[in-house]
Design a protein around this nucleic acid. Sequence first.
DNA 1: TAAACCAGTTTATAATATAAACCAAATAAT
DNA 2: ATTATTTGGTTTATATTATAAACTGGTTTA
Lengths: 93, 93
Amino acid sequence: MKELDPILHSQLRLAVMSILMNVEEADFVYLKEQTESTAGNLSVQLDKLSSAGYITVTKGFVGKKTRTTCQVTEQGRKAFEQYVEALKTYLNL
Amino acid sequence: MKELDPILHSQLRLAVMSILMNVEEADFVYLKEQTESTAGNLSVQLDKLSSAGYITVTKGFVGKKTRTTCQVTEQGRKAFEQYVEALKTYLNL
DNA sequence: TAAACCAGTTTATAATATAAACCAAATAAT
DNA sequence: ATTATTTGGTTTATATTATAAACTGGTTTA
């Protein structure tokens, strides 16, 4: 039985990746809304995805307000697709 | 975003359920082989699935040797199917 | 200028997964 | 016959994880 990438096998990280797979980029606030997570949890999980090289996190400004935007990397895209393939063997899809 | 049942969102428990969904019953030794898990880990996770009402665990004998067999319950079957549906929204399937 | 707010980060805690250590019975070896 | 090994597990300890609570630094509002 195939291994399930532990970085992706986490509800919140998977939700984030799922969103980022379908969108050019997404910012912190948007991800927080969509995933209904707390800021702290989201912050931690974004760090993990970033450390794993699955996303890039860019801090910028919009006017005077900070804005943190995230994008999936090519590596992240691949990992996600492999995770999906592995899961299919578990789910009988 | 849908919640992912935490009882099923675990590699080993999911693997066990996946096997049990396709088979009338399976014993401890078989599950251990198929999942390539340690006996300790498997024992703990079977307990959790059992406590959740997702499987039944029956201890019997075959000759003089003990034999622990597992079957998925109707509740377990439903939970598994719902988990699959929930996951699909994450995986874009 | 103080109070409330926004966008996050850091830290503490609780839950989880996992393997190591253990146990009792059966079989094999000496 | 007695000791060693294997089988089929369970219990317990540990390391990792997920999560929320508490905090921070700047910003707008009153």
